[in-house]
């Protein structure tokens, strides 16, 4: 399995890993709300948040390389949102630039918080904690399925692109569109069929619908 998985670092034994899942979820949510609510004049608070998070990241013994990779992944999205802020004229260039920076910083810090949460809490523990916090069951079930099948699907998608590549497909711009269409179609059909088989497996073991589903009790 070559894909990284969501809670890859979550099975270590640091103090941060051992802290209660529910507490970590609450603190993360509160942290994100706080960061999102910060105004343009509160750069100092942002700096404090960054220092605090850096400390926690160190405490959780999370490899900086992995952390940076995830941040880079979300950077383009954060930048897009930042640019959309620029299209609304507000004050002079200095104000605009500061707003732009603020939006990006907030987005990155929020993702950092979530990353810390997932990197120090095994996903099943997270689900159990959410259940204790009265999160609706159907939501827990969906999250569980995502966790279970997301990477399997990523593998499948990769195999499909490899199959295309091994038949001489080079991905030139115009010809590409058609094959990408095929690929997405195939991927949809396969995922749909897997869904059917998983549902058959659930029925076979006495599943009678979400209202009867018991777990995390």
């Amino acid at each position: 399995m070559r894909h990284q998985f969501l809670d890859e670092h979550a099975y270590r034994g640091t103090a941060l890993h051992r802290a209660s899942g529910g507490l970590k979820i609450l603190f993360s949510l509160a942290g994100i709300l706080w960061v999102v609510g910060l105004g343009p004049g509160q750069a100092k608070s942002l700096a404090v948040a960054v220092l605090f998070l850096a400390g926690l990241t160190k405490l959780g013994k999370i490899p900086p390389g992995d952390f940076l990779k995830r941040m880079l992944l979300v950077f383009p999205i954060a930048a897009m949102i930042g640019i959309s802020v620029l299209t609304v004229p507000r004050g002079d260039h200095g104000v605009q630039a500061r707003l732009f920076g603020l939006v990006i910083a907030k987005a990155l810090i929020s993702v950092w918080i979530l990353f810390l949460l997932t990197a120090t809490t095994p996903f099943p523990v997270m689900l159990e904690s959410l259940a204790r916090m009265r999160c609706p069951k159907i939501f827990l079930m969906l999250l569980g399925f995502c966790y279970r099948y997301l990477f399997l699907m990523a593998d499948e998608a990769e195999r499909m692109t490899h199959a295309l590549a091994s038949r001489g497909y080079e991905g030139r711009w115009l010809g590409q569109a058609r094959f990408i269409g095929h690929l997405i179609g195939m991927f949809f059909v396969r995922s749909y069929e897997r869904g059917e088989r998983v549902f058959a497996a659930m029925l076979s073991r006495g599943y009678e619908g979400p209202e009867h589903w018991r777990a995390y009790e």
């Binding site: 996903f123 099943p124 689900l127 569980g144 399925f145 966790y147 279970r148 099948y149 399997l152 897997r194 088989r197 998983v198 058959a200 497996a201 659930m202």
Partner: peptide
């Protein structure tokens, strides 16, 4: 395919 049968997080 056991992946179809084991659909839970643990």
């Amino acid at each position: 395919n056991a992946d179809d049968q084991l659909f839970c997080p643990t």
